Simulated assay, not measured.
Amino acid sequence: MRRLAFAILGLFLAAQGQAQSIVPAPPQVAAEAFILVDAATGFVIASEKPDAALPPASLTKLMTSYVLANEIAEGRLSRDEQVVVSENSWSQNPVFNGSSLMWIEPGKDVTIGELERGIVIASGNDATVAVAEHIAGSEEAFAELMNQHAERLGLSNSHFMNSHGLPDPNHYTTARDLAKLSAAIIREFPEHYARYKELDYTYNDIKQYNRNKLLREDPSVDGLKTGYTSEAGYGLVASAKRGDMRLISVVLGTSSPTARKNETRSLLNYGFRFYETARLLDAGEELEKPRVWKGQVDYAPVGVLDEIVLTLPRGKRQQVEQRVALVDDIEAPLAVGDSVGTLTLLLDGELLYQGPVVALEAVAPGGFFARLWDIILMWLASLFGG
């Protein structure tokens, strides 16, 4: 029979006389699909049709810029590197007629760093094609590279046919996948992510402004990207950080630039007001120091190797209940990370987390007589139920 050891994280508030945290329903969002996610935990705070496959328009450029940032991080590309502008990537390509452009020209030098800003800030379709051809040789080969990264990142309902997002029946993604992609950009490429909060960019004597208007209206917002085609409607992927909490919001298929901005603001305010990112256990935190049999020491610390961070209703952190269940007989040898039990975290009787309790220190086997003595003690304990 497993032994249960109960502990309370912080103060477990008594029910009587205590006001309970009330979390209202999420706001109504006028969009084809939306999702609000805690960037640290991946917890979905609110959503509607998060897995509906929809045309992303210029939100495609999040994946284009992810591939670009990855190539730089891997050392295969430099921001100072010069790029040849082809006729295909020229701003006067009829395919780009009426769409957003960086205004690059054949025969005029342009660097990867300039194209990076041209994609992120100016949303230039010409810039995406120049980057695609420079990295992969062709738009088709680059699209395949985008899909390989999508698969690796777990974007299970996305498929890319081009680098810019102009309509194609086989070019689609979802609100959930865009949130995952945005979290990866923020987590993996902080230097690149910093480009998303820049308010304007001038190239070829043309000054263009970041279309994410929340950057000018909410100081907590520091990215990411807008998108629009008549087929896709108006979309916005935004991220904001207030205190220790970062949220990612995705709205797709709204009716106007003002609508996408306002719906995003409503979602972000809801998430920050009613939820918090709670670090419940630190990496390497000890939970107990149980008896270890047949080892060079009689007791050893056990706990969690990695920090445990969860999204909770605001004000509920102190009411999380922690349960540690250890195996009956823990025996040496033990290596750091060996599982010796299970940790369960509950809130109001609902499961929040369950994972292994592990050895935090290695325990080598004891000598022959020490092991023999422990075997005798374990046998006696089994006879008398100790």
Rank of each mutant, 00 (worst) to 15 (best):
F6A: 07
F6D: 09
F6E: 09
F6T: 07
F6V: 12
A7G: 07
I8C: 03
L9A: 08
L9E: 00
L9C: 05
G10R: 06
G10W: 10
G10K: 08
G10S: 06
G10E: 02
L11D: 12
L11H: 04
L11W: 00
L11K: 00
L13M: 09
L13E: 11
L13K: 05
L13N: 02
A14C: 14
A14K: 03
A15R: 14
G17C: 01
Q18Y: 15
Q18L: 13
Q18A: 15
A19W: 04
A19E: 13
Q20D: 05
Q20P: 10
S21T: 12
S21C: 05
S21R: 05
I22T: 04
I22Q: 14
I22Y: 13
V23A: 10
V23N: 02
V23E: 04
P24E: 05
A25V: 01
A25K: 14
P26S: 12
P27K: 01
P27F: 06
P27W: 01
Q28R: 15
Q28L: 14
Q28E: 11
Q28K: 00
Q28I: 09
V29Q: 04
V29C: 12
V29W: 07
V29T: 11
V29K: 09
A30E: 15
A30P: 10
E32V: 13
A33K: 09
A33P: 00
A33T: 07
F34H: 13
I35F: 01
I35Y: 12
I35Q: 01
L36P: 06
L36Q: 08
L36R: 04
V37L: 08
D38M: 06
D38F: 13
D38H: 09
D38N: 11
D38A: 02
D38C: 03
D38V: 07
A39V: 05
A40H: 14
A40P: 03
A40Y: 00
T41Q: 13
T41L: 13
T41W: 15
G42L: 03
G42F: 11
G42R: 01
F43R: 01
F43Q: 07
F43P: 12
V44W: 04
I45P: 14
A46T: 04
A46K: 06
S47A: 14
S47D: 12
E48Q: 10
E48F: 15
E48P: 13
K49H: 11
K49D: 14
K49R: 15
K49T: 12
P50K: 08
P50F: 06
D51L: 08
D51I: 02
D51H: 00
A52M: 12
A53E: 15
L54I: 12
L54N: 11
L54Q: 10
P55D: 01
P56F: 09
P56C: 11
P56E: 01
P56I: 10
P56K: 01
A57H: 10
A57L: 09
L59A: 02
L59N: 00
L59H: 02
L59S: 12
